[in-house]
Design a binder for these strands. Structure first.
Lengths: 216, 216
DNA sequence: GGTCACCTAGTCCCTAATGACTATTGCTGC
DNA sequence: GCAGCAATAGTCATTAGGGACTAGGTGACC
Protein backbone atom coordinates (compact mmCIF):
# COMPACT_ATOMS: atom_id res chain seq x y z
CA UNK A 1 0.00 0.00 0.00
CA UNK A 2 1.19 3.51 -0.82
CA UNK A 3 0.09 5.85 1.94
CA UNK A 4 -0.01 9.57 2.74
CA UNK A 5 -0.30 10.27 6.47
CA UNK A 6 -1.59 13.56 7.88
CA UNK A 7 -1.46 14.55 11.55
CA UNK A 8 -0.41 17.67 13.42
CA UNK A 9 1.65 15.81 15.97
CA UNK A 10 5.00 15.35 14.35
CA UNK A 11 5.82 12.63 16.82
CA UNK A 12 2.85 10.52 15.85
CA UNK A 13 3.42 11.30 12.20
CA UNK A 14 6.97 9.99 12.20
CA UNK A 15 6.25 7.07 14.47
CA UNK A 16 3.27 6.03 12.40
CA UNK A 17 5.31 6.28 9.22
CA UNK A 18 7.93 4.06 10.77
CA UNK A 19 5.38 1.54 12.00
CA UNK A 20 3.68 1.33 8.62
CA UNK A 21 7.01 1.06 6.87
CA UNK A 22 8.04 -1.79 9.13
CA UNK A 23 4.93 -3.65 8.04
CA UNK A 24 5.86 -3.42 4.38
CA UNK A 25 3.81 -0.40 3.40
CA UNK A 26 5.19 2.59 1.63
CA UNK A 27 4.51 5.93 3.30
CA UNK A 28 5.07 8.24 0.37
CA UNK A 29 4.52 11.47 2.28
CA UNK A 30 3.93 12.91 5.74
CA UNK A 31 1.72 15.99 6.05
CA UNK A 32 1.31 18.30 9.03
CA UNK A 33 -1.85 20.01 7.78
CA UNK A 34 -4.83 19.05 5.59
CA UNK A 35 -3.55 21.46 2.93
CA UNK A 36 -0.22 19.67 2.82
CA UNK A 37 -2.07 16.39 2.64
CA UNK A 38 -4.04 17.55 -0.39
CA UNK A 39 -0.84 18.61 -2.16
CA UNK A 40 0.87 15.37 -1.25
CA UNK A 41 -2.05 13.33 -2.58
CA UNK A 42 -2.09 15.36 -5.78
CA UNK A 43 1.58 14.69 -6.28
CA UNK A 44 1.88 11.04 -5.22
CA UNK A 45 -1.55 9.59 -6.01
CA UNK A 46 -1.40 7.13 -3.10
CA UNK A 47 -3.73 4.19 -2.51
CA UNK A 48 -4.93 5.67 0.72
CA UNK A 49 -4.63 8.82 2.84
CA UNK A 50 -4.74 8.51 6.63
CA UNK A 51 -6.09 11.84 7.85
CA UNK A 52 -6.41 13.10 11.43
CA UNK A 53 -9.86 14.58 12.04
CA UNK A 54 -8.56 16.85 14.76
CA UNK A 55 -7.97 20.02 12.78
CA UNK A 56 -9.69 23.28 13.66
CA UNK A 57 -12.52 24.67 11.59
CA UNK A 58 -13.54 21.44 9.91
CA UNK A 59 -10.58 21.63 7.51
CA UNK A 60 -10.21 17.86 7.78
CA UNK A 61 -13.70 17.27 6.43
CA UNK A 62 -13.29 19.67 3.53
CA UNK A 63 -9.93 18.06 2.79
CA UNK A 64 -11.75 14.76 2.21
CA UNK A 65 -13.70 16.44 -0.54
CA UNK A 66 -10.66 17.90 -2.22
CA UNK A 67 -8.73 14.66 -2.05
CA UNK A 68 -11.61 12.69 -3.55
CA UNK A 69 -11.82 15.25 -6.31
CA UNK A 70 -8.20 15.50 -7.36
CA UNK A 71 -7.46 11.82 -6.88
CA UNK A 72 -10.62 9.66 -6.98
CA UNK A 73 -8.63 6.44 -6.75
CA UNK A 74 -7.24 7.49 -3.36
CA UNK A 75 -9.27 6.25 -0.39
CA UNK A 76 -9.46 8.45 2.68
CA UNK A 77 -9.40 6.97 6.17
CA UNK A 78 -10.00 9.29 9.09
CA UNK A 79 -7.95 8.99 12.26
CA UNK A 80 -9.58 10.24 15.45
CA UNK A 81 -7.72 11.27 18.58
CA UNK A 82 -10.51 11.63 21.08
CA UNK A 83 -13.61 9.71 22.07
CA UNK A 84 -15.53 12.40 20.20
CA UNK A 85 -16.78 10.23 17.39
CA UNK A 86 -19.64 12.49 16.45
CA UNK A 87 -18.06 13.42 13.14
CA UNK A 88 -17.79 9.87 11.82
CA UNK A 89 -21.13 10.16 10.02
CA UNK A 90 -20.21 13.46 8.43
CA UNK A 91 -16.80 12.15 7.39
CA UNK A 92 -18.32 9.10 5.66
CA UNK A 93 -21.01 11.26 4.08
CA UNK A 94 -18.32 13.56 2.72
CA UNK A 95 -16.57 10.70 1.01
CA UNK A 96 -14.24 9.11 3.56
CA UNK A 97 -13.86 5.36 3.24
CA UNK A 98 -12.99 4.65 6.82
CA UNK A 99 -12.70 5.91 10.35
CA UNK A 100 -10.48 4.57 13.11
CA UNK A 101 -9.52 5.67 16.62
CA UNK A 102 -5.99 6.24 17.85
CA UNK A 103 -6.68 3.94 20.75
CA UNK A 104 -6.56 1.01 18.31
CA UNK A 105 -3.44 -1.10 17.80
CA UNK A 106 -1.48 -0.57 14.62
CA UNK A 107 -2.43 -3.96 13.21
CA UNK A 108 -6.05 -2.94 13.34
CA UNK A 109 -5.36 0.38 11.68
CA UNK A 110 -3.40 -1.35 8.94
CA UNK A 111 -6.31 -3.72 8.49
CA UNK A 112 -8.69 -0.80 8.16
CA UNK A 113 -6.45 0.82 5.55
CA UNK A 114 -6.38 -2.47 3.71
CA UNK A 115 -10.15 -2.76 3.77
CA UNK A 116 -10.50 0.79 2.48
CA UNK A 117 -8.13 0.08 -0.40
CA UNK A 118 -10.14 -3.04 -1.24
CA UNK A 119 -13.15 -0.78 -1.61
CA UNK A 120 -14.83 -1.74 1.64
CA UNK A 121 -16.09 0.64 4.29
CA UNK A 122 -13.56 0.62 7.10
CA UNK A 123 -15.55 1.60 10.16
CA UNK A 124 -16.24 -0.25 13.36
CA UNK A 125 -19.80 -1.60 13.26
CA UNK A 126 -20.66 0.00 16.60
CA UNK A 127 -19.48 3.41 15.44
CA UNK A 128 -21.35 3.05 12.17
CA UNK A 129 -24.55 2.22 14.00
CA UNK A 130 -24.19 5.25 16.23
CA UNK A 131 -23.46 7.42 13.22
CA UNK A 132 -26.50 6.23 11.31
CA UNK A 133 -28.96 6.35 14.15
CA UNK A 134 -29.12 9.82 15.67
CA UNK A 135 -29.44 12.27 12.74
CA UNK A 136 -30.08 15.05 15.26
CA UNK A 137 -33.46 13.88 16.52
CA UNK A 138 -36.00 16.31 17.87
CA UNK A 139 -35.30 15.35 21.47
CA UNK A 140 -31.61 16.16 21.11
CA UNK A 141 -30.91 19.26 23.19
CA UNK A 142 -28.75 20.50 20.33
CA UNK A 143 -31.26 19.78 17.61
CA UNK A 144 -32.53 23.35 17.74
CA UNK A 145 -29.08 24.83 17.09
CA UNK A 146 -29.44 24.38 13.35
CA UNK A 147 -32.34 26.82 13.34
CA UNK A 148 -30.39 29.68 14.89
CA UNK A 149 -29.83 32.65 12.60
CA UNK A 150 -26.46 34.35 12.18
CA UNK A 151 -27.57 37.20 14.39
CA UNK A 152 -28.62 34.75 17.06
CA UNK A 153 -25.24 33.08 16.93
CA UNK A 154 -23.65 36.47 17.51
CA UNK A 155 -25.99 36.96 20.44
CA UNK A 156 -24.99 33.52 21.67
CA UNK A 157 -21.36 34.55 21.64
CA UNK A 158 -22.20 37.66 23.67
CA UNK A 159 -24.04 35.47 26.15
CA UNK A 160 -21.07 33.12 26.36
CA UNK A 161 -18.90 36.15 27.08
CA UNK A 162 -21.13 37.01 30.01
CA UNK A 163 -22.37 40.28 28.55
CA UNK A 164 -25.50 42.00 29.82
CA UNK A 165 -28.25 43.13 27.47
CA UNK A 166 -26.79 46.63 27.47
CA UNK A 167 -23.28 45.53 26.57
CA UNK A 168 -24.70 43.22 23.97
CA UNK A 169 -26.69 46.05 22.39
CA UNK A 170 -23.55 48.21 22.28
CA UNK A 171 -21.33 45.54 20.75
CA UNK A 172 -23.99 44.62 18.19
CA UNK A 173 -24.79 48.24 17.44
CA UNK A 174 -28.52 47.95 18.09
CA UNK A 175 -31.03 49.12 20.68
CA UNK A 176 -31.24 47.20 23.92
CA UNK A 177 -34.78 46.21 23.08
CA UNK A 178 -33.56 44.56 19.88
CA UNK A 179 -30.82 42.70 21.68
CA UNK A 180 -33.47 41.65 24.15
CA UNK A 181 -35.67 40.28 21.39
CA UNK A 182 -32.79 38.28 19.93
CA UNK A 183 -32.01 36.83 23.32
CA UNK A 184 -35.64 35.93 23.81
CA UNK A 185 -35.93 34.24 20.41
CA UNK A 186 -32.71 32.39 21.14
CA UNK A 187 -33.99 31.11 24.46
CA UNK A 188 -37.29 30.08 22.91
CA UNK A 189 -35.58 28.18 20.11
CA UNK A 190 -33.32 26.37 22.53
CA UNK A 191 -36.18 25.65 24.89
CA UNK A 192 -34.39 27.08 27.91
CA UNK A 193 -35.46 29.72 30.39
CA UNK A 194 -32.35 31.78 30.97
CA UNK A 195 -29.22 32.87 29.16
CA UNK A 196 -27.24 31.02 31.79
CA UNK A 197 -28.93 27.79 30.78
CA UNK A 198 -28.22 28.58 27.15
CA UNK A 199 -24.55 29.09 27.99
CA UNK A 200 -24.52 25.88 30.02
CA UNK A 201 -26.06 24.01 27.11
CA UNK A 202 -23.40 25.25 24.75
CA UNK A 203 -20.42 24.66 26.98
CA UNK A 204 -21.62 21.24 28.09
CA UNK A 205 -22.91 19.61 24.92
CA UNK A 206 -22.02 22.17 22.30
CA UNK A 207 -18.53 21.25 21.31
CA UNK A 208 -16.52 23.50 19.06
CA UNK A 209 -18.11 21.66 16.14
CA UNK A 210 -21.61 22.95 16.88
CA UNK A 211 -20.54 26.45 15.96
CA UNK A 212 -21.21 27.48 12.37
CA UNK A 213 -17.95 27.60 10.44
CA UNK A 214 -18.32 31.13 9.07
CA UNK A 215 -18.85 32.52 12.59
CA UNK A 216 -15.87 30.75 14.15
CA UNK B 1 18.33 3.75 27.28
CA UNK B 2 15.76 1.49 28.89
CA UNK B 3 12.37 3.13 28.64
CA UNK B 4 8.80 2.68 29.88
CA UNK B 5 6.23 4.48 27.71
CA UNK B 6 2.76 5.42 28.94
CA UNK B 7 -0.03 6.76 26.74
CA UNK B 8 -3.72 5.96 26.32
CA UNK B 9 -3.56 5.86 22.55
CA UNK B 10 -2.50 2.35 21.72
CA UNK B 11 -1.52 3.50 18.26
CA UNK B 12 0.93 6.08 19.53
CA UNK B 13 2.16 3.69 22.18
CA UNK B 14 3.10 1.01 19.69
CA UNK B 15 4.41 3.39 17.09
CA UNK B 16 6.54 5.20 19.63
CA UNK B 17 7.90 1.92 20.93
CA UNK B 18 8.86 0.98 17.41
CA UNK B 19 10.45 4.35 16.69
CA UNK B 20 12.48 4.28 19.89
CA UNK B 21 13.48 0.68 19.25
CA UNK B 22 14.66 1.56 15.77
CA UNK B 23 16.97 4.16 17.31
CA UNK B 24 18.66 1.60 19.52
CA UNK B 25 16.71 2.17 22.72
CA UNK B 26 15.04 -0.56 24.65
CA UNK B 27 11.37 -0.01 25.40
CA UNK B 28 10.96 -2.44 28.26
CA UNK B 29 7.22 -1.88 28.72
CA UNK B 30 4.22 -0.12 27.25
CA UNK B 31 1.55 1.14 29.65
CA UNK B 32 -1.96 2.31 28.82
CA UNK B 33 -2.62 3.99 32.17
CA UNK B 34 -0.51 5.73 34.84
CA UNK B 35 -1.21 2.83 37.18
CA UNK B 36 0.22 0.39 34.67
CA UNK B 37 3.18 2.69 34.22
CA UNK B 38 3.89 2.67 37.96
CA UNK B 39 3.77 -1.14 38.03
CA UNK B 40 5.98 -1.37 34.97
CA UNK B 41 8.54 1.00 36.48
CA UNK B 42 8.50 -0.97 39.72
CA UNK B 43 9.19 -4.15 37.82
CA UNK B 44 11.69 -3.01 35.20
CA UNK B 45 13.50 -0.12 36.88
CA UNK B 46 14.03 1.73 33.58
CA UNK B 47 16.31 4.71 33.01
CA UNK B 48 13.37 6.87 32.05
CA UNK B 49 9.58 6.83 31.87
CA UNK B 50 7.85 8.77 29.09
CA UNK B 51 4.42 9.66 30.48
CA UNK B 52 1.49 11.27 28.71
CA UNK B 53 0.06 14.12 30.81
CA UNK B 54 -3.35 13.71 29.24
CA UNK B 55 -5.00 11.49 31.83
CA UNK B 56 -8.16 12.56 33.61
CA UNK B 57 -8.13 13.65 37.23
CA UNK B 58 -4.46 14.55 37.42
CA UNK B 59 -3.48 10.90 37.70
CA UNK B 60 -0.44 11.62 35.55
CA UNK B 61 0.92 14.12 38.05
CA UNK B 62 0.41 11.82 41.01
CA UNK B 63 2.03 9.02 39.03
CA UNK B 64 5.21 11.12 38.85
CA UNK B 65 5.33 11.09 42.61
CA UNK B 66 4.84 7.35 42.88
CA UNK B 67 7.41 6.60 40.23
CA UNK B 68 10.01 8.82 41.88
CA UNK B 69 9.31 7.09 45.16
CA UNK B 70 9.49 3.47 44.11
CA UNK B 71 12.33 3.99 41.65
CA UNK B 72 14.35 7.16 42.36
CA UNK B 73 16.87 6.38 39.63
CA UNK B 74 14.11 6.51 36.99
CA UNK B 75 13.68 9.91 35.36
CA UNK B 76 10.19 10.96 34.33
CA UNK B 77 9.59 12.91 31.13
CA UNK B 78 6.11 14.20 30.46
CA UNK B 79 4.61 14.00 27.00
CA UNK B 80 1.92 16.55 26.20
CA UNK B 81 -0.67 16.17 23.47
CA UNK B 82 -2.15 19.64 23.34
CA UNK B 83 -0.91 23.17 23.33
CA UNK B 84 -2.14 23.32 26.92
CA UNK B 85 1.22 23.60 28.56
CA UNK B 86 -0.09 25.03 31.81
CA UNK B 87 0.82 21.92 33.76
CA UNK B 88 4.51 21.97 32.89
CA UNK B 89 5.36 23.87 36.06
CA UNK B 90 3.38 21.54 38.26
CA UNK B 91 4.89 18.49 36.58
CA UNK B 92 8.44 19.72 37.18
CA UNK B 93 7.58 20.74 40.73
CA UNK B 94 6.23 17.25 41.37
CA UNK B 95 9.48 15.68 40.28
CA UNK B 96 9.38 15.28 36.53
CA UNK B 97 12.72 15.73 34.78
CA UNK B 98 11.36 16.84 31.45
CA UNK B 99 8.43 17.93 29.40
CA UNK B 100 8.00 17.64 25.65
CA UNK B 101 5.15 18.17 23.19
CA UNK B 102 3.89 15.59 20.73
CA UNK B 103 4.33 18.09 17.94
CA UNK B 104 8.08 17.59 18.23
CA UNK B 105 10.03 15.20 15.97
CA UNK B 106 11.18 11.93 17.46
CA UNK B 107 14.82 12.93 17.35
CA UNK B 108 14.05 15.82 19.63
CA UNK B 109 12.10 13.63 22.01
CA UNK B 110 14.94 11.12 22.12
CA UNK B 111 17.30 13.96 22.83
CA UNK B 112 15.09 15.12 25.70
CA UNK B 113 15.00 11.61 27.12
CA UNK B 114 18.78 11.50 26.85
CA UNK B 115 19.15 14.81 28.64
CA UNK B 116 16.84 13.62 31.42
CA UNK B 117 18.87 10.45 31.88
CA UNK B 118 22.05 12.54 32.05
CA UNK B 119 20.43 14.39 34.96
CA UNK B 120 19.62 17.56 33.10
CA UNK B 121 16.27 19.28 32.99
CA UNK B 122 14.66 18.44 29.66
CA UNK B 123 12.31 21.30 29.00
CA UNK B 124 12.20 23.84 26.20
CA UNK B 125 13.53 27.15 27.52
CA UNK B 126 10.45 29.04 26.32
CA UNK B 127 8.14 26.65 28.14
CA UNK B 128 10.22 26.82 31.26
CA UNK B 129 10.11 30.60 31.25
CA UNK B 130 6.36 30.60 30.91
CA UNK B 131 6.07 28.05 33.70
CA UNK B 132 8.24 30.07 36.07
CA UNK B 133 6.86 33.49 35.36
CA UNK B 134 3.13 33.61 36.03
CA UNK B 135 2.65 32.00 39.46
CA UNK B 136 -0.96 33.20 39.36
CA UNK B 137 -0.37 36.92 39.72
CA UNK B 138 -3.01 39.17 41.24
CA UNK B 139 -4.12 40.56 37.90
CA UNK B 140 -4.79 37.08 36.54
CA UNK B 141 -8.55 36.65 36.21
CA UNK B 142 -8.10 33.16 37.65
CA UNK B 143 -5.94 34.22 40.54
CA UNK B 144 -8.97 34.40 42.81
CA UNK B 145 -9.97 30.81 42.11
CA UNK B 146 -7.57 29.50 44.71
CA UNK B 147 -9.52 31.30 47.43
CA UNK B 148 -12.82 29.62 46.67
CA UNK B 149 -14.10 27.29 49.35
CA UNK B 150 -15.41 23.79 48.63
CA UNK B 151 -18.96 24.99 49.00
CA UNK B 152 -18.32 27.78 46.57
CA UNK B 153 -16.95 25.31 44.03
CA UNK B 154 -20.16 23.35 44.37
CA UNK B 155 -22.08 26.56 43.82
CA UNK B 156 -19.88 27.20 40.80
CA UNK B 157 -20.85 23.85 39.36
CA UNK B 158 -24.53 24.66 39.87
CA UNK B 159 -23.98 27.94 38.05
CA UNK B 160 -22.21 26.15 35.23
CA UNK B 161 -25.23 23.85 34.98
CA UNK B 162 -27.46 26.86 34.49
CA UNK B 163 -29.34 26.40 37.75
CA UNK B 164 -31.36 29.18 39.35
CA UNK B 165 -30.93 30.11 43.00
CA UNK B 166 -33.94 27.96 43.88
CA UNK B 167 -32.67 24.85 42.11
CA UNK B 168 -29.28 25.44 43.63
CA UNK B 169 -30.76 25.65 47.11
CA UNK B 170 -32.62 22.39 46.51
CA UNK B 171 -29.64 20.50 45.15
CA UNK B 172 -27.39 21.78 47.92
CA UNK B 173 -30.02 21.15 50.58
CA UNK B 174 -29.99 24.67 52.00
CA UNK B 175 -32.27 27.70 52.06
CA UNK B 176 -32.37 29.93 49.02
CA UNK B 177 -30.95 32.75 51.07
CA UNK B 178 -27.91 30.64 51.85
CA UNK B 179 -27.40 29.69 48.24
CA UNK B 180 -27.72 33.39 47.46
CA UNK B 181 -25.03 34.29 49.94
CA UNK B 182 -22.67 31.71 48.47
CA UNK B 183 -23.31 33.04 44.97
CA UNK B 184 -22.68 36.56 46.17
CA UNK B 185 -19.43 35.66 47.90
CA UNK B 186 -18.38 33.77 44.79
CA UNK B 187 -19.08 36.74 42.53
CA UNK B 188 -17.26 39.07 44.89
CA UNK B 189 -14.20 36.83 45.05
CA UNK B 190 -14.06 36.53 41.27
CA UNK B 191 -14.66 40.23 40.81
CA UNK B 192 -17.55 39.76 38.42
CA UNK B 193 -21.08 41.10 38.52
CA UNK B 194 -23.22 38.17 37.40
CA UNK B 195 -23.26 34.39 37.52
CA UNK B 196 -23.18 34.42 33.75
CA UNK B 197 -19.85 36.25 33.84
CA UNK B 198 -18.58 33.75 36.37
CA UNK B 199 -19.58 30.91 34.06
CA UNK B 200 -17.98 32.70 31.11
CA UNK B 201 -14.79 33.13 33.11
CA UNK B 202 -14.65 29.44 33.91
CA UNK B 203 -15.47 28.15 30.45
CA UNK B 204 -13.16 30.61 28.71
CA UNK B 205 -10.02 30.64 30.86
CA UNK B 206 -10.78 27.97 33.39
CA UNK B 207 -9.64 24.80 31.78
CA UNK B 208 -10.36 21.47 33.37
CA UNK B 209 -7.18 21.95 35.36
CA UNK B 210 -8.54 24.89 37.35
CA UNK B 211 -11.00 22.64 39.09
CA UNK B 212 -9.89 21.26 42.46
CA UNK B 213 -9.03 17.59 42.11
CA UNK B 214 -11.23 16.33 44.94
CA UNK B 215 -14.28 18.01 43.39
CA UNK B 216 -13.78 16.64 39.92
C1' DG C 1 -47.54 41.21 -5.97
C1' DG C 2 -47.68 38.33 -2.04
C1' DT C 3 -45.52 35.32 1.34
C1' DC C 4 -41.93 34.32 4.33
C1' DA C 5 -37.87 34.76 7.15
C1' DC C 6 -35.03 37.89 9.44
C1' DC C 7 -33.63 42.08 11.76
C1' DT C 8 -35.21 45.75 13.94
C1' DA C 9 -37.81 48.19 17.93
C1' DG C 10 -41.05 48.77 21.18
C1' DT C 11 -44.65 47.83 25.21
C1' DC C 12 -46.43 45.93 29.95
C1' DC C 13 -45.88 42.97 33.78
C1' DC C 14 -43.57 40.00 36.70
C1' DT C 15 -39.69 37.26 38.57
C1' DA C 16 -34.89 36.56 39.38
C1' DA C 17 -30.67 38.37 40.48
C1' DT C 18 -27.61 41.64 42.67
C1' DG C 19 -25.58 44.97 46.24
C1' DA C 20 -25.05 45.84 50.90
C1' DC C 21 -25.76 44.72 54.88
C1' DT C 22 -26.30 41.86 59.82
C1' DA C 23 -26.17 37.66 62.52
C1' DT C 24 -25.78 32.88 64.35
C1' DT C 25 -23.46 28.51 64.49
C1' DG C 26 -19.53 25.41 64.44
C1' DC C 27 -14.88 24.32 63.62
C1' DT C 28 -9.80 25.17 63.82
C1' DG C 29 -5.54 27.01 65.45
C1' DC C 30 -2.93 29.89 68.64
C1' DG D 1 -10.81 31.07 75.61
C1' DC D 2 -10.59 33.75 71.63
C1' DA D 3 -9.73 35.07 66.82
C1' DG D 4 -10.70 33.71 62.20
C1' DC D 5 -13.07 31.40 58.79
C1' DA D 6 -16.74 28.87 56.61
C1' DA D 7 -21.41 27.81 56.40
C1' DT D 8 -25.74 28.99 57.54
C1' DA D 9 -29.82 32.43 57.33
C1' DG D 10 -31.95 36.59 57.04
C1' DT D 11 -33.19 41.77 55.65
C1' DC D 12 -33.78 45.88 52.42
C1' DA D 13 -33.68 48.32 47.95
C1' DT D 14 -32.42 48.27 43.21
C1' DT D 15 -31.50 46.45 38.72
C1' DA D 16 -31.45 42.92 35.18
C1' DG D 17 -33.76 39.36 32.98
C1' DG D 18 -37.70 36.95 31.10
C1' DG D 19 -42.76 36.06 29.11
C1' DA D 20 -45.89 37.63 25.91
C1' DC D 21 -46.92 40.36 23.00
C1' DT D 22 -47.17 43.99 18.56
C1' DA D 23 -45.11 45.97 14.49
C1' DG D 24 -42.29 48.30 10.74
C1' DG D 25 -38.62 47.43 7.23
C1' DT D 26 -35.98 44.55 4.11
C1' DG D 27 -34.64 41.06 0.90
C1' DA D 28 -35.52 36.44 -1.15
C1' DC D 29 -38.36 33.42 -3.57
C1' DC D 30 -42.40 31.91 -6.20
Amino acid sequence: MRIVVCDDHLLLLEALGLALGARGHEVVALAGTPEEAVSAVAMHRPDVCLLDVNFPGGTSVSAIHEIREISPETKVVMLSAEADHSIVGRAIAEGASGYVGKEKPIVEIVEMLDRAVRGQLAVEPSLLQRALRPQKSTDDPLWALQFLTDREWQVMRCIMDGQTTEEMATSLGVQRSTARTHVQNLLTKLGVHSRLQAAALMSAHGSHESWPAHLR
